[in-house]
Simulated scan of single mutants.
Amino acid sequence: MRKLAETEDLSGLVRDALGPGCRVVAVDRLRGGSRKGVYRVRVDGAAVPTVIVYSWAEEENFWPDRRATDAEDPLAPASGLAPFLTARRKLDVLGARVPRLLLADDGRHRLPADAAVVEDVSADTLEALLERDPARASAALADLAATVDVLHGHLAPRYGRPDPPERGGTASGASCGQLVLDRALRDLEEASGREGRIAAAQGCLRDRLHALAARVSPRSEHGLVHGELGPDHVLVDADGRAVLIDIEGLMHFDVEWEHVFLRLRFGRHYPALSRPGLDPRRLDLYLLAMHLSLTAGPLRLLDGDYPNRAAMRGIAEHNLREALALLP
């Protein structure tokens, strides 16, 4: 049985952030997180009624395979206080709206894990508003589009995480296209071991990936991308601004990688985010690779005890079918 954070666990941390006069009255773990715990904490005696706490405790990580990942690989999972703080600083400098940081604790003074306390922007995600309040959502979507334009226009000659200045960024000899191909082949192999329909088409899918990758030329400039920018990772504040969350995966990369994800997640609302000049060859490769990633990842997560299992099965099934539909 996992031991997740409760009121007494978070009280000291929140008092450190808001002052000794505040008292925690309720703690709710928000759904959806698979690598960190996200808690809405209600308080009395403070200038704000609620805050959000991020906890990167081992107990909050539901992924069954926690082998060390290559820190030089921008497509490797990013999680932790350090990448969160680095991404937050970068976004703040560029004028992107992110939750205000109230406290960062990497000394594990209050929790047996790195943690952060941030502004509780809103309970409204852009995803929810697109269904419930189209007028308000439309303004926030336009603001998000402007933010994405700034990020994608922030070019760098090297791909990788926006590391602290002392590290200077990451890059290897491989192009972004080669990185995506290599990961897609790993995802294909992994998904084939868990799902018979993928296994039956493994050879055709492998050939298709290689054929698409052969059409992609290396590129010398890379935009800044969120990495997982769905409407559930955008909040809307009281001024109608789009607020980016789950930012640890921020990286310089081909912007087509982000646009494929935006198109998948925003669906009929994607035209507000679409831009001319995208490389159609990259889009073709990255679309198939993304569907394979969103098949293999959820299937791997289901090897463990992740609680929202029906949603993960649904994601895997949808992307499995979409991947197979891309075969010629």
Rank of each mutant, 00 (worst) to 15 (best):
R108I: 12
N61E: 13
A201H: 15
V150Q: 00
R136C: 07
V118P: 04
E59N: 10
N308G: 02
H252R: 12
A139E: 12
V93A: 03
L235S: 10
A71L: 13
H233W: 01
V180A: 12
Q202Y: 06
E190P: 01
P328Y: 12
W56R: 09
R108A: 14
A113I: 07
C176E: 01
E190R: 15
P112E: 10
V234A: 01
D65P: 00
D114L: 06
E221L: 09
P20N: 06
A17P: 14
A137I: 11
V234T: 06
R281I: 02
A68I: 15
K90W: 02
R300H: 12
M1E: 14
Q178I: 09
V260W: 09
V43R: 03
D114A: 11
E166G: 00
R29T: 14
V27K: 06
F62R: 02
P280Y: 08
D143W: 11
E258Y: 01
R31I: 13
L91M: 13
L273G: 00
G95Q: 12
R206C: 11
Y286I: 05
A137V: 12
D106P: 14
A323N: 05
A171N: 00
L75K: 10
A123W: 02
P276D: 03
C204I: 04
A310E: 09
A310L: 01
H318P: 00
E60I: 11
N319G: 07
R167E: 15
R67Y: 04
A289F: 09
E60M: 08
P328D: 14
R23G: 06
E195C: 13
L181Y: 13
L101P: 01
L103Y: 15
A57E: 10
R100D: 11
D28K: 15
A137R: 07
P83Y: 08
M290N: 13
H318V: 09
A87L: 10
V25D: 10
P231S: 08
D237G: 07
G173M: 07
Y306N: 02
V93F: 00
E221I: 00
L129D: 10
A47D: 14
K36Q: 15
L179W: 14
H291R: 08
H252A: 07
N61A: 04
L155N: 02
T69C: 09
G168M: 05
N61S: 05
S172L: 05
R40L: 12
D92K: 13
L18K: 13
R67E: 12
D279H: 08
E258H: 01
P298T: 02
H318A: 07
E58A: 15
L273W: 04
P134S: 06
V255G: 00
R89I: 03
D73R: 10
K3A: 11
K90D: 00
V48C: 07
R265N: 07
R100Q: 13
L301S: 03
L273P: 04
G21A: 10
P218C: 03
D143M: 06
D149P: 00
L209A: 04
